[in-house]
Design a protein around this nucleic acid. Structure first.
Length: 830
RNA sequence: GCGGGCGUGGCGAAAUGGCAUACGCGGCAGGUUUAGGUCCUGUUGGUGGAGACACCGUGGGGGUUCGAGUCCCCCCGCCCGCACCA
């Protein structure tokens, strides 16, 4: 006892969480324990993927959390003996590199690759279980060659195309943006207010895949967070209804409108055309033209934010024309307004003010008629100013009179189809993906524009179209058109088709194109006959777990799903969803707020590691709470984590039995704790509950400490078993300490692949369990009983308890509920 | 406005409908120490009680159940997503 006291009072000899790092990282570099094995087909395979970083500087606290979480998953699979693919790479095209190059009068590659080296070195220290041999960078010609190759396959299938039209424009970044990159009217990247411009741009026809992107979500129901699926569903925004043709007086072709409520067609009292739609311009009557143009110009000047505000009062102008309702021949006025969107549906609507709030607001503002055609039991819309969009009985509606909405919709569609004035229709909120960017540091679009031949794809064998090396510094300054246009020698080429003078397309691709397929490339990063080796992809994909931030819920994840479906259609792969499980880690904040320079609350990862060591930072990240929750760094205690690590290390160092000592015959109570911990931690890690798994590990260490200090002593084989188990579990969370403890236990590195312990079922059976005896739901006694005690026996024992007799105080018993062996509840008659 | 999620000690958080608050931080007390720190032990939801113990307690109200933090309904608060998508 006294010797234990002494050793516990000493500073833990030789153990310093920071000191072990250099030793072991050098050793691991020799051992390379995390190489994915291509040769072994017998082992189960797993693909653990982390969202690859953008090389904006050094790694930060957010990376530390995300990669710690992804690494627990990968290390768990390594320990279980699976053949694991856990790669790393860099999403290395993008604007910040360009801005840095302008500032430093250098080439974006310099900044980019210097940052990559910085991050790679930090990763080496942070020690995720990466297979470094598969490292890739999307800005390498060896990579973007295949991005271009894929673009051309899209092009051949009509999935990449150019069109003119209104696009989102970021005035700060001086480039166009995809719809997905406009968040609340602002640029997703830089936060500037987005403007509209009319430009000709490249698009990917993602709308062709809208139905499949929705329907295939069934495959993800169990593996993806519900809210991400929901966000994607909302983003795609499928709605069903009908297209209805309205004749416009004095125009040959009818105008089609889309409605989800064809059952309210008899209540349509006017029509509204989007003010910025060509249709409005075309049909406006001469006497209204001046008023219309004034209105339209006013609308085009207002910001997206103003326009989107639903609170705002409705505005509009009468176009001086009338449409004819196809079901009742009624003549209704046609107006133009900005509350109708040119890009959705047909850019024109039938307005049913009684049953749609927006239409009602408009009708009341401009004194247009309102007709109730659904009796909902609600108040009169004109009197109350509140539309009644709910269910009810259809009235004033000819062939659908008296029906409910559910019955009326198919019936009225039948009527429209018989008359040839309408049909059932589906609409999506999703727009095609705008992929061209007027920036330098991206993947060039492999198309040549020829005066004679038009758009001509660069032949596959001429790929990659490399970025010109001679542009740098001020050449890259944003000017609204691509800086690549300045590289004349690069731009001017012979047309691949006719050989005549032609020009390269000077736009580059959205960097989200690069990141839409990198996880395929990881399967065979050296492959030169295509973007990936189909054999390797069959081996590793789809990804078993994808770890990353929720900020990509619609952008990257939707695009990647789209790419995967196109690759499937190209016959290159045989699955349709790339990521089976998705884990979105929370954010690391400080003092309740996101870390930022302006708040001065940033926490530097490098400094934290210098002060506490990698293992402390990793453990703190994992123990702070569930991985999906935000971590407030102000609330975590690195000192507490350090204390635990040294407790565990000391326990391992104190074990005196020889490695390989059989645990049988050791302290049974400790062995039970060990095996229960194995069973629980296995389940907990499987279900991403790392914080609870670490809590169980702490309990095991405490139990081992007590066994060493108490009866069993440091030589007991059960103590070795417990210490080895704790070390193996720790290897998922704190690899350096685990390795050093493993070494102290006389075992050989690496602990990372030493094998996951398995729980002995015999030791999971409790000798006795505590049964709670309640009277009227309140605990009045506890009994130690055999775990397999039968209900009748347990009931007898419970009723015989003196405490229970006291609590009952002679009352009659109405009922006894027995759930052997855990609980007995005795209900007295009242 | 629509959709979704969440409200548990001083704090981060645990809890297949079955002992609420595991584990950790912080606090308190003690041990070790020249001292401090490290380390070790104990204790720590509230109220009352010297104590055994009793009562109350998971945002508020109601319900289902022998039994509710957990399931259902209403309300309050916070967070997230979408936001004139016809």
């Amino acid at each position: 006892m006294s010797s234990d006291e002494t050793s516990r009072n000493d500073t833990p000899e030789g153990y310093d969480p920071r000191a072990v790092q250099d030793t072991w990282s050098a050793r691991w570099a020799e051992l390379r324990p995390f190489r994915a094995d291509e040769s072994d087909d017998a082992r189960e395979r797993r693909y653990a993927l982390d969202m690859f970083p953008y090389p904006s500087g050094d790694l930060h606290m957010g990376h530390a959390e995300a990669f710690a979480i992804g690494d627990v998953r990968a290390r768990f699979w390594f320990q279980r003996g699976y053949d694991v693919l856990h790669p790393i790479g860099w999403d290395s095209f993008g604007l910040p590199a360009e801005n840095a190059a302008i500032k430093r009068d250098s080439h974006p590659a310099e900044w980019t690759y210097a940052n990559i080296e910085t991050q790679a070195a930090s990763f080496q220290r942070y020690a995720p279980s990466f297979d470094w041999s598969r490292r890739l960078h999307t800005s390498d010609p060896e990579y973007y060659r295949w991005t271009q190759w894929l673009f051309l396959r899209f092009y051949e299938r009509g999935l990449a195309y150019r069109k003119g039209g209104q696009v989102n424009w970021c005035p700060n970044d001086q480039t166009v943006l995809a719809n997905e990159q406009v968040v609340g009217g602002h640029c997703e990247r830089c936060g500037w207010l987005v403007e509209k411009r009319v430009l000709t741009q490249w698009y990917f026809r993602i709308t062709d895949y809208a139905d499949r992107l929705l329907d295939d979500m069934d495959q993800l129901e169990d593996g993806w967070p519900e809210r991400v699926l929901l966000m994607q569903r909302n983003w795609i925004g499928r709605s069903t209804g009908a297209d209805v043709d309205f004749v416009i007086e004095g125009r040959d072709a009818p105008v089609t409108v889309y409605t989800t409520r064809p059952d309210t067609l008899f209540g349509a009292t006017f029509m509204v055309v989007a003010a910025d739609a060509p249709l409005a311009e075309e049909i406006v009557a001469p006497e209204q033209r001046a008023a219309f143009e004034a209105y339209r110009d006013e609308v085009s000047r207002e910001s997206e934010i103003e326009r989107m505000s639903a609170e705002r009062e409705k505005t509009g102008v009468f176009l001086g024309r009338y449409a004819v309702n196809p079901v009742n021949g009624e003549r209704i006025p046609v107006w133009a307004s900005d509350y109708v969107l040119a890009e959705y549906g047909h850019g024109a609507i039938m307005a049913v003010p009684a049953h749609d709030q927006r239409d009602l607001d408009f009708a009341l503002k401009f004194d247009l008629p309102v007709r109730v055609v659904v009796e909902t039991g609600g108040p009169d819309p004109v009197q109350s100013g509140v539309a009644t969009p709910g269910e009810g009985t259809i009235v004033n509606s000819g062939p659908i009179e008296g029906l409910t909405k559910t019955d009326a919709i198919p019936r009225i569609i039948e009527v429209l189809e018989e008359r040839g004035t309408g049909k059932a229709a589906v609409n999506f909120r999703l727009r095609d993906w705008l992929v061209s960017r007027q920036r330098f540091w991206g993947c060039p679009i492999p198309i040549v524009h020829c005066a004679a031949c038009g758009e001509v794809p660069v032949p596959d064998e001429e790929l990659p179209v490399k970025l010109p090396a001679d542009l740098k510094g001020a050449d890259l300054a944003p000017k609204g058109t691509s800086p690549l246009a300045a590289a004349e020698a690069w731009v001017n080429v012979a047309c691949p088709k006719c050989g005549g003078a032609a020009q390269r397309d000077t736009d580059t691709m959205d960097t989200f194109v690069d990141s839409s397929w990198y996880y395929f490339r990881y399967c065979s990063p050296q492959y030169t006959d295509g973007p990936f080796d189909p054999e390797a992809v069959r081996r590793w994909m789809p990804v078993d777990q994808y770890t990353g931030g929720v900020e990509h819920a619609i952008l990257h994840l939707l695009y990647s799903r789209f790419f995967t479906k196109v690759l499937y259609d190209l016959g290159m792969i045989d699955f349709t969803e790339p990521f089976l499980r998705l884990l979105n880690q929370g954010q690391v904040v400080n003092g309740g707020k996101a870390m930022s320079k302006s708040l001065g609350n940033g926490v530097d990862l490098g400094e934290q590691i210098d002060e506490f060591g990698v293992d402390v930072v990793r453990l703190a990240m994992l123990f702070a709470g569930p991985p999906e929750d935000d971590i407030d760094w102000a609330d975590v205690s690195p000192q507490g984590m350090a204390k635990f690590l040294s407790r565990l290390h000391r326990v391992a160092a104190e074990v005196t039995s020889e490695p390989g000592t059989a645990p049988a015959g050791g302290d049974v109570a400790l062995r039970r704790v060990t095996h229960r911990t194995i069973a629980e931690v296995t389940t907990l890690v499987d279900s991403d509950r790392f914080n609870v798994a670490i809590a169980r590990l702490m309990e095991l260490v405490t139990a081992t400490r007590r066994a060493i200090d108490g009866g069993a002593g440091p030589a007991d084989p059960a103590v070795r078993e417990a210490a080895e188990t704790a070390t193996l579990i720790l290897s998922l969370f704190a690899p350096y300490t685990a390795e050093d403890a493993w070494d102290r236990l006389g075992r050989r590195a690496p602990v990372a692949t030493a094998g996951w312990p398995s729980a002995d079922p015999a030791l999971l059976v409790q000798e006795s369990v505590t049964c709670v005896v309640q009277v009227a739901g309140k605990v009045r006694d506890r009994l130690e009983v055999a775990p397999d005690i039968d209900a009748a026996d347990l009931e007898r024992q419970a009723l015989a308890s003196p405490k229970i007799k006291d609590a009952l105080a002679g009352a009659d018993i109405a009922k006894v509920i027995v759930r052997a062996p855990k609980i007995v509840n005795i209900v007295p008659r009242r």
